[in-house]
Amino acid sequence: MKKNFFILLLLLLAMYSEAQIRVLTPADITKGIFCDKQRFRIAYDMSFVKDTLRSNKPVKESMILEIGSSVSLFYSYAAFHSDSIYADDIAKGLSQSAINEHLNNSGVGQISWKLYKNYPQKGLSSLLDGLGMERYCCIEKMQMPDWNVCPDSTAMILGYNCRMATAVYKGRTWCAWYAEDIPVGEGPWKLCGLPGLILRAYDSQHQYVFEASGMEQIKDNADLRYKGEKFEPIERKALDKLYARYYADPVGYITNNPNIKVTITDANGNPTAKPKAVPYNPIER
């Protein structure tokens, strides 16, 4: 594993509102620790609003929910795709320019976090995320939303009859449609605990919307692996502070490391100001 070999993809400062700086480091291409066998894989389309002042321009991302017998993993497909390409290219010993080419074509995704439910043990969840070059793992007690079922609701999603339930959870009012005929109490992000699999979920302001777009039953004994073994443990409060810190002044955050000097200039090499208060709309409020 090349600990010193990493690619930094910088998406322009001007694109802060839409894009994300994602740094790929060797910690991202680890094989991971085995934690469960996969039983189902559900694909979701996640659409979320980054800038609450411009809520008519949500960002879309494909997400995957891997469901095992007890552990589940929710992650961005685009990020997974680019991580796999990166790992593959490194293993093949491709040149840097070929790797850059592949990554540029695939994109690196907007969602850098991965959520493991019931890992490292039942009742705990692990959130893996990275800011700049640091990698963090936040282990918290899993809190199931306190759902209220709406008996008169019906919807047909992906050929399944679904019922709706609502809950006030982590600062938002969530509506979730679950499939009664899929008795798996799982769903996207931290939403779970319903009698069936959640196929559609959104908050009351439609700032976060999850819509299942496909599902698959795993027959090839695939593993569910934990990829955060090299990530630094962090408390929830500290992580929230870091997010707030990062988005308020991304350049300042990166340059806390004195080896990093940042000067922003305009098109012709003349110094200008640094970006402040990049829009940030966390899923937990």
């Binding site: 509102s17 685009a78 695939s106 994109g107 200039t265 200008t272």
Partner: peptide
């Protein structure tokens, strides 16, 4: 599923009153 992220779309109007960038300082 190939999640081609349109990372190139950006809105400069948000930074209309901000100073522009040059590669050297990016």
């Amino acid at each position: 599923i190939y999640g081609k992220q349109d990372t190139i779309s950006y809105d400069l109007s948000r930074f209309a009153d901000n100073r522009d960038n040059n590669l050297k300082d990016v």
